[in-house]
Design a binder for these strands. Structure first.
Lengths: 113, 113
DNA sequence: CCTTCATACGTAGCAAGCCTACTTGTCCGC
DNA sequence: GCGGACAAGTAGGCTTGCTACGTATGAAGG
């Protein structure tokens, strides 16, 4: 997938992943890769700064912990983050509907459960 | 709509508009606005450079003409542009399916005729 | 013991892309 | 004459994601 396509949607993706439960950065990367079927394989240099950005914005909160001698920074969605995610979702729907109107075939037949 | 969201998809949009017939820049802006229901109201500073970019890439070709004393640069899709559009469409489908999997509600019920 | 790999975090600098603001010029109505 | 719609364009800035690099631990293999 063209990498640049993500522009402006990464934050929404991260919030959506964290919506299902708190995760640390490395696990977020793996979750994105797994849930996208390998399509989204994002480098740490993309994820970590994005998470700091989200934290500065107050959309996620982080806690440090040590697991097996390894430092982990676990992020969880805040209330503001939940609201932001709702907005991002609405924005995505409008965006995808709009672009889909031009590019056609917006709706793939397979509606995943 | 958040403008930044367009990042990386503007080219596809422009090619899609031109697929239906040659238009000049100003008319392209109006076509985008009309077909998107007002959602896509892009400034000239966005459209004109993008069209030059597409022309440099060989995806569109332009012809000057004068209508009512006003200079018009009319753009039309080239063969390469048509192929590029097909690729963009496929890319868009993958992208929207992927992001939609995270943001949910990828497929709006209304399939326009 | 030492190397390598997976886990885990992070920064610095770069490139791309779109927007804001501004400029030029014609035609039409007042 | 002046303002507004039409029509094209450039310059500079800002955001964003990527590449490349750096640091550290634990487990496995030679």
């Amino acid at each position: 997938m063209k990498a640049h396509a993500l522009h402006g949607h990464l934050d929404a993706l991260l919030l959506a992943v964290l919506e299902q439960g708190a995760l640390h950065g490395y696990a977020i990367i793996e979750a994105l890769r797994a849930r996208s079927g390998g399509t989204l394989d994002l480098p740490t240099g993309t994820i970590y700064p994005a998470l700091r950005r989200l934290e500065r914005a107050g959309y996620v909160a982080s806690d440090w912990s040590t697991v097996n001698g390894r430092e982990r920074r676990t992020y969880q969605l805040t209330d503001a983050g939940g609201r932001a995610l709702a907005g991002e979702r609405a924005g995505w729907r409008e965006f995808s509907a709009t672009v889909g109107r031009f590019l056609g075939t917006d709706a793939p037949p397979a509606g995943p459960a």
